[in-house]
Structure formats: C-alpha cells, structure tokens
Amino acid sequence: MGTKGKEKIITVLFWFSALIIIAILVGIIGYIVVKGISAISWDFITQPPSRAGKEGGISTTIIGTIYLTLVAMILAVPFGVGAALYLEEYGRKNTRFGYALKLTAETLAGIPSIVYGLFGFVFFVIFLNMGWSILSGGLTLAIMILPTITRTAQEAVIAVPQEYRSNSFALGATKWYTIKRLILPAAAPGIVTGIILSIGRAVGESAAVILTAGSSLGMPLNITDPARTMAVHLYILAMEGISMERAFGTALLIIVLIVIINYLANLSLRKLARQ
C-alpha cells in the first residue's frame, strides 16, 4: 500500500476515535436528559424533599451542594495558589522541600476519595468533634482538591515567561508587585482550569461527603449543620430504590449546576484578572 493509502486509513481511524468519544458523551448526557427531564419542575428545584425524597423537591440538597463546595473552595484555593506561588516565586529552586511537596501533591491527587472521607470522618467528625457538618465536609473536600489546585496553579505560574519577571524587577518592582500585576493575571486561565476541575470533583463527590457531612435532608443554615448534597441524594435515591426517575432528575440538575458554576467561575476570575 502506498503512503497516501496509509495516511488515509490512519486519518479515518483517528476520526473514528474522536467520533466514539463524542458519541459516548452525547449518549450519556442524552440518556440522562431523556430519563430525568420528566422529574424536573419548578417545585422539584424549589421544594424541600419529603418522605425521604419520594415526594417534594431537592432544594435542600442543591443548597447543601453549593454551600459545601463554596466552603471547600474558600479553604483550598488560597492555600493551593499560595503554595504554588511560594514554590515557584519565593522558595529556592530545586530544593528537597520543593521536590517533596511536588511528590506529595501528586500522590495525594491519586488517593481515592473514600480514603479522604474515612480520614475526615475520624479526624474532623469524631476527633475534633465537629460532627457531620458542612465544616467537616468542606475541610475534607478542601484537602482532597488541594493537590489538584496546587499542581495546576504551579504549572500555570511556570508557564509565565521568565522575561516578564526580569523586566518587571529591572523596572524596580518587588516580587509581590510582579506577582499581583503580571504573574497572576498571566497565569489566571491555567489557575481557573484547576479550580473548575476541582469544583467538578467537589460537586460530584459522594463517598467522602456522606462520611463527613452526613445525609440529613434538613436545610443547612449554619456551617455546623449536617447536609446532604445532590450527589449523595442521587446515590441514596438509586441505592434504596426510592425513585429512579428522581435520581435521574437529580443527575441532570448536577450537570446543569456544574455548567453554571464553571461559567460563573470563568467569568468572575477573568474579570478579576483583567483588573
């Protein structure tokens, strides 16, 4: 067979792989939409669940999800980005400490979430006596996503051209000024990507959350209140055979919520970067 023929076959094969990926994605989302759309109504979104979720809506779990994710992000983002900035801009390069931190971050990123859940349960819920609460769950999720945020922020900061720094310093800028005005804006898209990935993980997490935030159907008001997130609600609805239709409805809303949160995160952080 000639070179041209081979090229053609390879092109078709790659095209086919791309097609399969798209088909799977569209298939799953389409299936969830078809199965879940009938459960969704205004009441489903705005009413609290009753009779263990058989009736009513899922409003408390939506609030629980947003609340928990927000707490996790507020805890994890400053520390993650701060650690990345320390490692790349302040700390000495190529030290054992930096290497150890990089290795730790990568190892931590690979630990299954249920292990984090177990740790959070023993440490925050029982040992620190925080009980099943937004706080325990938020702390556990924060620890879980911290490695991802740190590593992506680190990569984003590394990718900022070295010349920006030397030019800025040569103009008399301090490190902090350079970071604030040049490095962070230039690294923002990369950092936002890490944050969005982490939001996705936090919103979708069930195992670690069930062990640390509990599965109460009440409306979480205080940070010390327990809460059930949408993912946990979905799990319980499906596992206990309460209602498959409502489980799919919840799944659909999780996807919608993630899309909305990503959009907002993108928008606000880009705006922040421009200032």
Binding site: P161, E163, Y164, S166, N167, S168, F169, A170, L171, G172, A173, T174, L182, P185, A186
Partner: peptide, 21 residues
C-alpha cells in the same frame, strides 16, 4: 534600596518582552 537603584538604572533586554496588557 534596590527598588530605588533600579528606578535610576533602567534596563532593556535582548528579547523585547512586552507585558500581556
């Protein structure tokens, strides 16, 4: 003070590096 020194002594580098703004 290094900041004051670098205000008095400016530098142009080999590769023009404009900031992304």
């Amino acid at each position: 003070d290094v900041v004051a020194l670098r205000k008095k002594v400016g530098m142009v580098f080999q590769k023009p590096s404009v900031f992304p703004m």
